[in-house]
Nucleic acid binder design. Structure first.
Length: 883
RNA sequence: GGGUGUUUAGCUCAGUUGGUUAGAGCAUCUCGUUUACACCGAGAGGGUCGGGGGUUCGAAUCCCUCAACACCCACCA
């Protein structure tokens, strides 16, 4: 016993245990088709920086799942990986370069990518190390990276296959442009926020008249690119304007008034300026009315030469001011009103997104979404919690095409070559050259143009959206498109666990691409956890500086404590408020397990074998076995529901209260070694998925010296022995515990020092027998010098009395008894009981209740009534005696 | 403009298919060095379950409605 430290010191233990797991290959999956396989892919962490609490909760939940499944006998593949995270990583590296006065343009593409790989290596090592520190029992031998060779091959294959099916196409359209990241983004990478703004009213005159139309806009600078004004065809105010030419102020270009149903009559003046190059709705209207599209805002957020000499080169916000001033000067600015509207921001850098017309690559989503929806309809995929299914299908129902090309360097370059026709943002040298303009999509660089034989082909400089490669993750990680053994063994995956914030970004794409390429749902269950927030419920962010570093928590309190603090009290899909005090609370619990075990191992001595089926000798023995098996039963059920918080909470309750507070204390005099060993072993097995380090370390004490050591991680998860669940035993024990509590309560109320042992007399009625059997335990825990248990007897005079559960408990100590205090105490008890009596009596007086409620409910109410009536009667008698 | 979630003790949250006087942890107060643990133990106080209405013998739990907060989606310029 002296070998076990008095308090649990996590850091050394964790290092030691971690090493053991690696040695024994705990996370390694076998991968034989005949074995029962369980597959789960770790959401690949971005190689941008360090692990945060979001990763910590992901790893904790997934490790709980993985360890639990492993212990139930599954061949678990939990495959770890990292994500190249295109924009995010490129941004950090560029930022770092900028600090040294460098830019990616100075370095050139190749050199720059080298730098990013350097960064990747460094942060990959750091993140892997941190994943280890979280206790993650994943299969490192199968680790994958979204940009490694195998995954890149999968990406190319996927791209080509979709292109051949005409599900990938190239088109010029209005896209979301981030002027800071200098790339287009998909629609879901744009975050809309309601912002204060202005509505500007600008007057456009009809050519050669003094009649005019006033238009309202939130973005006056775009008027330089207007090519029409639209009104609703039914709008009486503007009937005779339709078809007329207006003079666009400043530019002095003629634009037509058109009629279109999409114009909202009630908004603004009912007349809309149409700028097809810079607004989605305008683009749609422009297309239908064959309007010209004039680009006035360039890719860097500056005005183009189309905006006119006065504005060219101006950044957007300046251009807005200048246009307003100009319009005001020439008298065309009617008024400015306050107007809140939703503004799109880059999800990576928060810059305001500009709609920009540009040639990009898209995935046609409708056919893919249909396949995914079919999977949902056929119930081939289950969401936990279920409500996310609705969100999932709704998004798929309204799906829009996915812009997948990015003007970045870090990522999978498109497997596309042009016969000297190059995309618009390529540099000038190649732009000048001309060819037959053929687009070649090919797995390997083509030697010459298949149409004209030209040798001078140029690869599209763009890369694919990071999420395109993540979308292939469930099968690309297993070697797809090759038909590998792993793919056959582990596909489809069993569970996909991640945060609900990437339901569309990631989960939906995996389901669609999985259905497309493998013909089935990539996983059976989608478990979505909530977001970790700070104690005020705010999102953790760098700008608020409210982030908590999980590694720091591990160093301070231990990994097990951190893991519990992320799971206990949390439910699927709901956000979790996190605070350091939660971790300290769980650290205390982990220490409790440690010390309870220390006590048990002290009692057991060395070379302990865990008994197969220990015999219960006493009521407490039978009770703890009943409670234990009830717990096992409940935890198994809760695991089925993915209610990990519930499982952890129940195990915690059992260990702390049933086992430590009661069972260990009750049996200290005469410990039953076999029951102790068995119960502790079951506890360690049950708790292991949640607190793997401390339990694995403690498990070492169960190893008989001669035998080869076995790991707890490879043990079987407990199954309930239903025959040991015994409600009668639990009820009896409940009475013993109630007696002890009642005595303790009276002692505290009467200020009897704990050191002072007292005498208690119990009139126990029908409970006499088994209370007598537990007399020594009651004496010990209630600190009694003697305990007299009788069926009934004369009311004990000069005693403090307590009536509970049909029992009379007397404390015959004249010194203790202050009649005044005792009367007061009894009276308050009486009052409470009378209130309770009234409640039940009223219920039973109601004929509807006695007639309609089930018999067992009515009976139990009657029993309660009898019991409380008895108690009241006894208290009243007592009060009479006291006078 | 649609949709979802949350609202239970000072704080963080549990509350299965409606059925004891609504629970736990933290915090608070009182007592305690009973050799596993002060990262502990014992005891106590604290809630008209967001408001209103309905269904029912019976509602924190089911239905309607309102409110606050959070989030998601949407081309109102």
């Amino acid at each position: 016993m002296s070998e076990i430290e008095k308090a649990y010191i996590p850091n050394d233990v964790e290092r030691d245990v971690s090493q053991k797991w690696t040695e024994f290959g705990v996370g390694k999956a076998v991968g034989k088709a005949k074995k029962k396989n369980f597959t789960m892919m770790m959401p690949p962490a971005n190689v941008t920086g360090a692990l945060h609490l979001g990763h910590a909760i992901t790893l904790t939940i997934e490790d709980i799942i993985a360890r639990h499944q492993r212990m139930t006998g599954m061949d678990v593949l939990w495959l770890p990986g990292t994500d190249h995270a295109g924009i995010a990583t490129q941004n950090v590296v560029e930022k770092r370069l900028l600090e040294k006065g460098l830019s990616r343009e100075n370095l050139g593409r190749e050199k720059f990518i080298e730098k990013v790989w350097d960064w990747k290596k460094k942060y990959h090592a750091r993140i892997s190390n941190q994943i280890h520190k979280m206790g993650a029992s994943c299969d490192w031998e199968r680790e994958a990276f979204t940009l490694d060779d195998e995954r890149s091959a999968a990406v190319t294959k996927a791209f080509i296959q979709l292109y051949k099916k005409k599900l990938i196409y190239r088109d010029k359209r209005l896209v979301n442009w981030c002027p800071r990241c200098k790339t287009v983004l998909s629609d879901i990478e744009v975050e809309h926020r309601e912002e204060e703004g202005n509505l500007y009213f600008i007057r456009y005159f009809v050519s050669a008249t003094d009649r005019s139309i006033c238009v309202a806009t939130t973005r006056p600078e775009t008027m330089l690119g207007d090519t029409a004004v639209a009104v609703h065809p039914d709008d009486k105010r503007y009937q005779d304007f339709i078809g007329k030419e207006l003079i666009l102020p400043i530019v002095n270009r003629e634009i037509k008034v058109i009629a279109d149903k999409r114009v909202e009559m009630k908004f603004g003046t009912g007349a809309v300026k149409i700028t097809p190059a810079h607004d989605q709705l305008d683009a749609a209207i422009g297309k239908d009315h064959h309007l010209e599209s004039i680009v006035v805002i360039g890719p860097h957020g500056k005005m183009t030469k189309n905006a006119g000499r006065r504005f060219v080169g101006m950044p957007l916000h300046e251009a807005r001011k200048a246009v307003i001033k100009y319009l005001d000067d020439i008298g065309n600015l009617e008024k400015i009103e306050k107007h809140d509207h939703s503004v799109g921001h880059c999800s990576r850098c928060d810059s305001v997104i500009e709609p920009l017309e540009s040639m990009q690559w898209f995935v046609k989503m409708q056919p893919l979404a249909e396949k995914a929806l079919k999977i949902v309809k056929k119930k081939q995929i289950e969401f936990v919690p279920a409500r996310f299914e609705k969100e999932f299908t709704r998004w798929l129902d309204e799906i829009r095409d996915w812009c997948i090309s990015r003007q970045l360097w870090w990522g999978h370059q498109l497997p596309v070559w042009y016969c000297k026709k190059v995309p618009e943002f390529a540099d000038k040298r190649i732009r000048k050259k001309e060819g037959c303009q053929r687009v070649i999509v090919s797995e390997k660089p083509p030697k010459k143009c298949p149409s004209c034989g030209n040798l001078n082909l140029v690869q599209d400089p763009d890369v694919l959206d990071t999420w395109f490669s993540s979308g292939l993750w469930p099968f690309a990680t297993l070697g797809w498109p090759k038909n590998t053994k792993d793919f056959r063994s582990f596909y489809p995956n069993t569970v996909l666990e991640t945060g609900y914030d990437i339901l569309f970004f990631w989960v939906a794409r995996m389901v669609m691409l999985g259905a497309e390429f493998t013909g089935k749902s990539p996983f059976k269950t989608v478990y979505l956890h909530g977001l970790v927030r700070d104690e005020l419920g705010r999102k953790m962010s760098k700008s608020l500086n409210n982030g908590i570093d999980p590694i720091e928590m591990i160093e301070k309190y231990g990994c097990d404590a951190l893991r519990l603090s992320l799971v206990v009290g949390s439910t699927p899909g709901n956000d979790l408020k996190f605070s350091e005090t939660k971790v300290t609370g769980q650290r205390n619990f982990v220490n409790k397990i440690w010390n309870a075990s220390r006590y048990v191992f002290g009692v057991l001595g060395k070379n302990i074998e865990i008994p197969k089926s220990p015999a219960a000798r006493t009521l407490p023995d039978r009770w703890i076995l009943s409670r234990l098996n009830r717990l096992i039963d409940e935890t198994n059920q809760a695991f089925e529901k993915y209610a990990f918080g519930e499982v952890a909470g129940k195990i915690q309750d059992f260990i702390w209260h049933d086992f430590c507070d009661w069972y260990l204390e009750l049996t200290k005099e005469k410990p039953n070694k076999k029951i102790l060993a068995h119960t502790l072993a079951q506890i360690l097995r049950l708790a292991h998925p949640f607190v793997p380090f401390v339990t694995e370390k403690l498990w070492e004490n169960f190893q008989p010296a001669k035998k080869k050591p076995k790991l707890l991680a490879n043990e079987k998860y407990p199954k309930p022995i239903k025959a040991q669940i015994n409600s009668k035993v639990e009820e009896e024990m409940q009475i013993i515990l109630a007696i002890i509590s009642a005595i303790r309560s009276v002692r505290a109320e009467m200020n009897v020092e704990p050191a002072r042992k007292i005498t208690v007399v119990i009139h126990a009625g029908k409970f006499e027998k088994f209370i007598k059997k537990q007399a020594s335990e009651i004496k010990k825990l209630a600190r009694l010098s003697s305990l007299v248990v009788k069926k009934s007897g004369q009311k004990v005079k000069n005693a403090v009395a307590k009536f509970d559960a049909g029992l009379e408990i007397y404390f015959p100590l004249a010194k203790l008894l202050d009649p005044k205090v005792e009367k007061k105490r009894l009276k308050s008890d009486l009052k409470e009981s009378e209130i309770y009596l009234a409640v039940i009596a009223k219920k039973l007086a109601n004929e509807d209740f006695t007639k309609r409620a089930p018999k067992n409910v009515v009976d139990s109410e009657r029993a309660k009534l009898a019991s409380v009536e008895d108690k009241i009667q006894k208290i009243e008698e007592r009060l009479k005696i006291l006078g």
